[in-house]
Computed example of a mutant assay.
Amino acid sequence: MSESAYPRGLAHVGLTVPDLDEAIDWYCDVLGFSHVKGPDEITADEGYGGRQAANLLGEFETMRFAHLATGNQIGIELFEFTSTGAHSEPDPTRAGLFHLCVIDPDVEGLAARIDEHGGDHYSEVWEIFEDDDEYTLTYCKDPYGNLLEIYSHSHERIYSNRDA
């Protein structure tokens, strides 16, 4: 592994959804992400893309996918497989990805918008640091069961301005 004088960037996060077209609309309309590419469809083991996808993702018949981008150029890659079933409840105690965090200075407003558009704002709005109402957060679910955290400020701004 090479040494780096800077942190590596994050290119994208992949999410599986049961209805790709609906999810593209939801993430763009509700969270304000940009639709970059797709939907595209791949059949496993068919052509270069199908062989590549089967090697990377394992067994599947066909899949559709699309690329979105956040305001700070982090990609969201949405996948729909012919075998995509209903969502399971996220379990933060299990190893692996369990939420996305989006930035919005109006945490309560975005949480209400998520609620109004088929998601679920299920937690309270919290001060990230006790007795400091400038920095807030809350948790929601998208309509597909994926956990969404909403921060009032960027991660760097929140933690670089605090004493260790």
Rank of each mutant, 00 (worst) to 15 (best):
V36L: 12
K37G: 09
D40V: 12
D40A: 13
E41V: 14
I42H: 02
I42S: 03
A44V: 07
A44Y: 03
D45G: 11
Y48P: 07
G50W: 02
G50H: 02
R51E: 14
N55K: 14
N55W: 12
N55D: 15
N55H: 14
L57Y: 04
L57T: 00
L57C: 03
F60G: 04
E61G: 14
T62P: 01
T62M: 08
M63P: 00
R64H: 06
R64M: 05
R64T: 02
R64N: 02
R64S: 05
A66G: 01
H67A: 07
H67W: 14
L68Q: 03
L68S: 02
A69H: 06
T70V: 07
T70G: 08
G71A: 09
G71M: 10
N72V: 08
Q73V: 10
Q73S: 13
Q73K: 15
G75W: 01
I76W: 04
I76F: 00
E77I: 05
L78K: 00
F81E: 03
T82M: 11
T84Q: 04
G85W: 08
G85I: 06
G85R: 11
H87W: 11
H87L: 10
E89T: 15
P90M: 05
D91C: 09
D91R: 10
P92Q: 12
T93N: 12
T93G: 05
R94G: 06
R94E: 10
R94A: 10
A95W: 09
G96Q: 03
G96D: 04
G96V: 00
L97G: 01
L100I: 10
L100H: 06
C101S: 15
C101W: 09
C101Q: 13
D106W: 07
V107D: 00
E108W: 07
G109E: 07
L110D: 00
A112G: 13
A112D: 13
R113V: 10
R113P: 01
R113G: 05
D115I: 09
G118D: 10
H121L: 01
S123P: 02
S123T: 15
V125S: 00
E127A: 14
E127S: 11
I128A: 08
E130R: 12
E130Q: 15
D131Q: 14
D131N: 13
D132R: 10
Y135K: 11
Y135E: 09
Y135R: 08
T136A: 06
T136F: 02
L137E: 13
L137R: 15
T138D: 06
D142K: 03
Y144G: 02
Y144N: 08
G145Q: 04
G145L: 04
E149P: 05
I150N: 01
I150V: 04
Y151M: 10
H153Q: 08
